[in-house]
Each structure stands twice: as C-alpha cells, then as structure tokens.
Design a protein around this nucleic acid. Structure first.
Length: 347
DNA sequence: AAAATGGGCAACCGCTTTCTG
DNA sequence: ACAGAAAGCGGTTGCCCATTT
C-alpha cells in the first residue's frame, strides 16, 4: 500500500497561477503566514490548489524579497564555485544568494550558466569519434559515465579544470581562491587573524586551502585544526558555508560534518595537484593513507562526487576524454591517464 | 506567413528528511 | 523508539514565446 496523497488530486487545480489566486495567497501569507501547515492552507483561503503547490508559489514567486532574473557576475561566481564544491545542492547554494530561490538558480544554471562555462566542449564526443555513429558515441558516453564518473561529477571536474586551469589558477575570476566573498568571514576556533592569514596565503598559493589533509603544514597547525575539527566546524565554515549553520548547530545538510569535510578533502586532494612544483599530494597522502582509507569506507558506495574523486585519486582510473572534454590536442587517442591525479600505487 | 525548433521558466512529481505526537 | 504527517529538495515536464527555416 502506498502513501496517502497529500491532497485530493481530482479536485485540485494545476498549471499556471492566476492573478486572483496569487492575490489570495499573498494577502493571507502577509497577514497570517502559513500557520505552520501548508496542507491546510488552501482550504482556509478557498484555493483549489495543493498545499505543496501553494508553498512553491509563495517561496519561488510571491515572497516579497524575491529577485528575478538579471544574475550578476558576482552571483555567477558564487554559483559556479559552490557547484564545483558541493554539486547540485541548490538550496544550499540559494542560501548564499539573498533573494534567489533554489528553483531560480537551478533553472539559471541548467539553461544559461552551464552553457556559458562549458558550452564549447559539448561537441567533443562527436569530434573524438568521427567514424562512429551517434548511437555508438552515446553508448560509449554512457558506458564510461557508469564506469568512471557520473554526469554531475564529470561536469564539475570539467568545470574545475576549465576554470582553475592547470597552471594559472590565480587569474580566473571564478576560482574559489579569487572569490573573497566565498571565504569565511570569521572562524570560531581559528579566529579572524588565522583566517585572514589563510586567505592572504591563498591568493598567492593555489595549493593552500583549509584542508585537514594539509595539517602539519605551515598554514594550520595540528592543535588548532584538531580543536576545530572536534568542534565540527572547520570544514563547512572554511568552504564558505552559512556561518549560522556551522556555528550555531552541529549539523547541516551534509550527512555529517565529518563526511562533508572528507568530501572537501577529496576534492582538494584531486584538484590541488595540477602543478607538481606545488605541495604535491604524494607527500600529503603518504601521511594520511589511513584517513584516505576511511574516506573510502565512507564513500565507497555513495556521494558520487566524493567517491568518484576518491577512486580517481586512489586507483588512477583511466578516463575517456570524450566524456572528460579534455583538450583536443592531447585527446586524440581516446583515453589517457589523468596526469594531474596521483595514481594510488604512486602515493 | 506558417511551421518547426529551441530556450527559458514556472510548476509538478516523487523521494528524502525532519518534525511531532 | 517508532510511525505518520509535513516540509524540503532536486529532477523533470510542459507551456509560452522568440527565433529560424
């Protein structure tokens, strides 16, 4: 037996909202709020709508503080950087952009921003397999996705590689490191001074990030890091999460803070190794094999991005460039080892 | 001028998470 | 601790409008 429907589907109106319906809902909301019950609301105000529909209409359209359209460069940067960091968690991204809704950002990303940032690479599978039929190309793409990276993870890796660039990470305006608005304003344990120090260093050293794998480096000493990790705060706070969620509560939309932290660690492990002259993951990873193993346990079967990157990092997977959107010059042979990612046996 | 196509966006659907008794 | 209800969330759909053929 399935779950009971939230409303009587047969007697509920669907489709676009009329001005009259909007006015009714708006007037009631401004006077009373939901009263804590969206399901009961439509009946109270005589609307033949599902409660969920009312909620959506209010949150995405009628709320007084909503901004529509006209995304700024600054907002683009935030969306892009957060998408790379956490993926399609639109509600979290929306929380960073006052007046924007998750739906709005999702639509904007899917219809415009993604194309703006990745558009030029879309024809690569076709170009890399000029003698294959569309069906074959599609099949290859799907197969490789299943074996290596999901579409979302791929997209984020492509974006990251495209936007950070292997050797010129500091010049790109979308870089996390060049987006001070993404940096923490305050850290409850490390304090403002240390955060400032991290930020200052970050602008000069691509590899310097608030990353537990970097513990023992000159940036964050073990004691401070351990203390902050014990407080379950550092990861979210340092990747620019809403300070209220990390400071006032011990949880957030991540499954747990620790897992969230590991997710970020893995991204950094993979991505911060483009330039071999920089710190280098091998040294870092050697010191933290145990930690990596625990990541593997946690992420072996879930959290596609983290697990994919973990496996990339640990198994040195071969990736088909047709799905990676690699620079065409180096992609002629169809597959390659990602030379920016350390092979497990090399760690 | 009409049909076809594609982009943008609001709204829906159904699953997951959180809340409440 | 548990179950059911409500809310939250992200993926998808479908409509409308502008552009292209």
């Amino acid at each position: 037996m399935g779950r009971a429907p939230c409303c009587d589907k047969a007697n509920v109106k669907k489709g676009p909202w009329s001005a009259e319906e909007d006015a009714k809902l708006k007037a009631y909301m401004e006077e009373h709020g939901t009263g804590g019950n969206w399901i009961a609301l439509p009946q109270k105000i005589g609307l033949k709508r599902c409660g969920k529909s009312c909620r959506l209409r209010w949150l995405n359209y009628l709320r007084p503080d909503i901004k529509h359209g006209g995304f700024t460069e600054e907002e683009d940067q935030i969306i892009c950087s957060l998408y790379i960091s956490i993926g399609s968690r639109w509600s979290i991204i929306a929380a960073q952009l006052p007046g924007r809704t998750d739906n709005d950002i999702k639509n904007y990303w899917n219809t415009r921003l993604k194309k703006k940032l990745l558009g030029k690479r879309r024809d690569q599978p076709r170009r890399l397999h000029p003698n294959r039929s569309d069906e074959e190309v599609n099949r290859i793409g799907v197969k490789n996705e299943n074996q290596t990276l999901s579409a979302s993870a791929l997209e984020r890796m492509q974006l990251h590689m495209q936007l950070q660039g292997p050797y010129n990470p500091n010049i790109n305006p979308f870089s996390f490191y060049n987006s001070p608005m993404l940096w923490p304003k305050h850290h409850p344990v490390l304090g403002d001074a240390r955060v400032s120090q991290i930020q200052a260093l970050s602008t000069n050293h691509f590899n310097v990030v608030a990353n537990p794998i970097l513990r023992g480096s000159t940036i964050i000493d073990d004691a401070a890091l351990t203390e902050s990790m014990n407080a379950n705060m550092i990861q979210e706070d340092l990747i620019g999460f809403p300070s209220s969620s990390s400071m006032e509560t011990s949880s957030s939309n991540f499954d747990s803070i620790t897992q969230g932290g590991i997710q970020v660690d893995l991204q950094n492990l993979v991505f911060n190794n483009y330039d071999p002259s920089l710190l280098g993951n091998q040294l870092l990873a050697n010191d933290h094999l145990e930690e990596l193993e625990s990541c593997k346990q946690i992420y072996g079967s879930e959290r596609e991005f983290a697990s994919n990157n973990f496996w990339l990092a640990c198994n040195g997977l071969t990736i088909d460039e047709s799905t990676m959107g690699y620079p065409s010059d180096s992609a002629a042979m169809g597959t390659t080892q990602l030379d920016c990612v350390p092979r497990y046996e090399d760690l």
